[in-house]
C-alpha cells in the first residue's frame, strides 16, 4: 500500500503555521522581535528549499525542523560572541578549596515571611527579572528544561550539547537564580 505524498502549499503557510512557529520560537528565545525574525527566516528558507521537500513528513514538521536549525544557529552565534553576560562563580575552581562555597556566595537563611507570599505577583515579576539577568544561553537551557519541561535528551539534541553540559548549565543557572532571589526577594 503506497502512502500519499504530501505536497507544499506556501500560500497557506502564514495562516496555518505562523502562530505555531512563533510560539515555538518565543519559548526558546524569549524575545518577540527575534522570534518574528526566526519565523520569517524559516519561511524564506522553506521557500528556497521547497524542491528538497520529499513529502515524507507534514508541512508543519518540516517547517519546525527548519526553525529548530535557525534557533540552534542563533545560539551558536551567541556562544561564539565575546563579552557574554558574566557568570557568577559560586565555588572555588582550584586550590585546596576547590569545589567549596565561595564565602560571599554561601546561602543565607531566608526570612520566614517568604512562605506566605509564594503566589504574589511581585514575586513572579522578580523571578522574571532574575531569569532575564542570566546569560542568554543559560536562560534558554534553564527555561527549556524547567519552564517548558522538555526532556533532557531533546534539549541536548536541539542545542548540540552533552547531558553533562546541560546539568552544569542548569546548576549554574539555578545557583545564580537562588542568589538573585535571596538578595532581591527573600532577604530584601
Amino acid at each position: 500500500m503506497s502512502q500519499e505524498k504530501i505536497t507544499l502549499n506556501a500560500n497557506k503557510w502564514i495562516d496555518n503555521y505562523a502562530d505555531y512557529l512563533f510560539n515555538y520560537a518565543i519559548t526558546r528565545v524569549n524575545d518577540s522581535d527575534l522570534a518574528k525574525d526566526l519565523v520569517q527566516e524559516t519561511f524564506f528558507a522553506g521557500l528556497k528549499s521547497a524542491k528538497n521537500f520529499q513529502g515524507k513528513s507534514t508541512e508543519r514538521t518540516w517547517l519546525v525542523s527548519i526553525l529548530k536549525r535557525k534557533v540552534i544557529d542563533h545560539y551558536r552565534k551567541i556562544n561564539s560572541k565575546k563579552g557574554q553576560a558574566e557568570v557568577r562563580m559560586n565555588f572555588y575552581d582550584d586550590g585546596e578549596n576547590e569545589g567549596s562555597w565561595i564565602e560571599e556566595r554561601v546561602p543565607q537563611s531566608w526570612n520566614n515571611e517568604s512562605e506566605k507570599v509564594i503566589e504574589n505577583r511581585e514575586l513572579k515579576t522578580q523571578l522574571d527579572v532574575c531569569i532575564d539577568n542570566l546569560p542568554e544561553k543559560y536562560a534558554m537551557v534553564f527555561k527549556m528544561k524547567t519552564i517548558q519541561e522538555f526532556e533532557t535528551e531533546e534539549i541536548c539534541k536541539e542545542l548540540d550539547i552533552t547531558a553533562s553540559n546541560l546539568w552544569v548549565i542548569i546548576h549554574r543557572a539555578r545557583t545564580q537564580l537562588r542568589k538573585c532571589m535571596e538578595d532581591n526577594w527573600f532577604n530584601n
Partner: peptide, 29 residues
C-alpha cells in the same frame, strides 16, 4: 516550587503573531 508556578503560568499563555506582522510576512513571501 517557584519555577513550577512560573511553568504553569507559561503553559497557560499562548503567543501569537499580530495580524500586521502576518500581512507583512505574506507580502514578503
Amino acid at each position: 516550587s517557584l519555577f513550577k508556578m512560573k511553568s504553569l503560568d507559561c503553559k497557560n499563555q499562548t503567543n501569537c503573531m499580530s495580524k500586521e506582522d502576518k500581512e507583512i510576512l505574506k507580502k514578503q513571501i
